[in-house]
């Protein structure tokens, strides 16, 4: 697939209720990410927080752009489940591709949206690895948030 085709699928949005988030984080096997083009990418099996082996920061991926982006999203979902403590929020509201190897995950909280930006690196052997995770915050509403 032409890399530019992958860039065309720039926006991956997952609007999830809080219950759906809990389910998504606890049981990725039941979760699905619907792309802007309407295709559906099913996420990987459940990853227990206590199972460090399941919390991989890299994994071998097929070379197609669709498969690679699926790999990256699975990696970032695992990482969110392992590292993000937004216990009271509204779940994942969007996963957006910023470029071929960078995705931003939006996690709405009261008065703000936490954004985790994941940068990935592609290894010659086909492995995809998380290169960095950068947290930031998007303000919502007027003045000081909740």
């Amino acid at each position: 697939m032409d890399p530019h085709q992958a860039n065309a699928m720039t926006t991956l949005s997952l609007f999830a209720h809080a219950r759906a988030l809990t389910a998504a984080l606890a049981c990725f096997g039941a979760a699905a990410i619907v792309t802007a083009s309407g295709s559906t990418a099913h996420a990987s099996p459940p990853a227990s927080k206590k199972d460090s082996k399941a919390m991989t920061t890299s994994k071998p991926c097929p070379k197609g752009n669709l498969e690679r982006s699926q790999c990256m999203i699975r990696l970032l979902l695992d990482d969110v489940a392992k590292t993000y403590d937004g216990s009271g929020g509204g779940g994942i509201s969007a996963i957006r591709a910023l470029n071929t190897t960078t995705f931003a995950v939006s996690l709405p909280q009261e008065g703000r949206i936490d954004v985790l930006t994941y940068e990935f690196e592609l290894h010659p052997d086909g492995r995809v690895a998380i290169k960095s995770r950068t947290p930031s915050t998007q303000n919502v509403g007027p003045g000081t948030g909740k």
Binding site: H17, G88, G90, E110, P142, G143, T144, G145, K146
Partner: peptide
Amino acid sequence: SENWFGSHSTL
């Protein structure tokens, strides 16, 4: 059926 809403300082 909802258990969360994105509220802020005036909503």
